[in-house]
Amino acid sequence: MKERTIRLTVNGRPYERTVEVRKTLADFLREDLDLTGTHLGCEHGVCGACTVVVNGEAVRSCLLFAVQLEGANILTVEGLADGDNLHPIQEAFWEHHGLQCGFCTPGFLLTLYCFLKETPRPSEAEIREAISGNLCRCTGYHNIVIAARAAAEKLASAGPTP
């Protein structure tokens, strides 16, 4: 199998790795970097569980090859909290029971992370639309929507986000 060497930044840390060209970004993060917080729910781009942030945009890591990410800046769920301090979105999910089995949760967190930067004061309809590409089988989304609204309020009252 053909391999290539890539350099990229994940959660603020630089990496250089040689990978098979056919390896997906999701598998690269999970297997080569041991960042197993990125979960695979469908591997065909529908469920959104594998969502990560690439250069500020939420993308599906199952639909990209790692070698496409040369030079990219990536944020995964492992990089969302600031040490032991949860990110306000994580806090809101905890507070409002926005997760049950937790498998889809990293994808929701990172989708909302990007959405709330662009739309700091969203309506409920905008929140629902923003996460409509992420599937959850446990919560019926009810508490996820509530958590997203609470997170927006927290972030807005805290001023510009890091």
Binding site: W94, H97, L109
Partner: peptide, 21 residues
């Protein structure tokens, strides 16, 4: 009561089957 499971799940530290090494 807030769930004890959640900090692990929210930070990606929880280990599902495919995360075991």
């Amino acid at each position: 009561v807030r769930r004890r499971e959640d900090p692990q799940l929210l930070t990606g530290r929880a280990r599902y089957l495919d995360d075991l090494r």
